[in-house]
């Protein structure tokens, strides 16, 4: 009946996460936002976001806040991904498929270098 996962497991996870946080100097959080309007969803935005979440999970990337938002308002560029590094301006990428999403995480979020060829404004 009861699922294998319990809230006790989650308590342990929480404590680990807090320990990890204490060891690091707080450098702020990176925000990743994926547009999830009807057009975005039809263009594959969920798969793009799923790729980002899987990568955070598999590569154990802390301090990234993942957000989804209904309407970025650039239908022809969906799926749209926006990245905000701590203290920096928002960078908007267009037509982001899972492969591009992986690249954006590696080069921009981890490496700190904007991929200008995928950028659509700013």
């Amino acid at each position: 009946m009861a699922t294998v996962k319990s809230l006790d497991d989650l308590k342990r996870i929480r404590e680990e996460a807090l320990k990890k946080q204490q060891m690091k100097e707080t450098s702020g959080k990176t925000e990743v936002i994926v547009g999830m309007g009807t057009v975005g969803i039809a263009a594959g935005a969920r798969e793009t976001l799923k790729t980002i979440m899987d990568m955070i999970e598999n590569e154990n990337l802390s301090d990234i806040i993942v957000r989804q938002t209904g309407n970025i308002g650039l239908d022809s560029f969906e799926p749209i991904v926006q990245v905000v590094l701590p203290g920096e301006e928002k960078v908007t990428y267009g037509k982001v498929n899972p492969e591009m999403a992986r690249q954006i995480i590696k080069e921009h979020i981890i490496g700190g270098k904007i991929i200008t060829e995928y950028q659509i404004m700013g």
């Binding site: 996962k5 497991d9 989650l10 996870i13 929480r14 680990e16 996460a17 807090l18 979440m53 955070i56 999970e57 590569e59 154990n60 990337l61 802390s62 990234i64 806040i65 993942v66």
Partner: peptide, 11 residues
């Protein structure tokens, strides 16, 4: 602790 913490997402 945020939901986007890797171990929390896995959970």
């Amino acid at each position: 602790v945020p939901l986007s913490e890797p171990a929390v997402m896995k959970f």
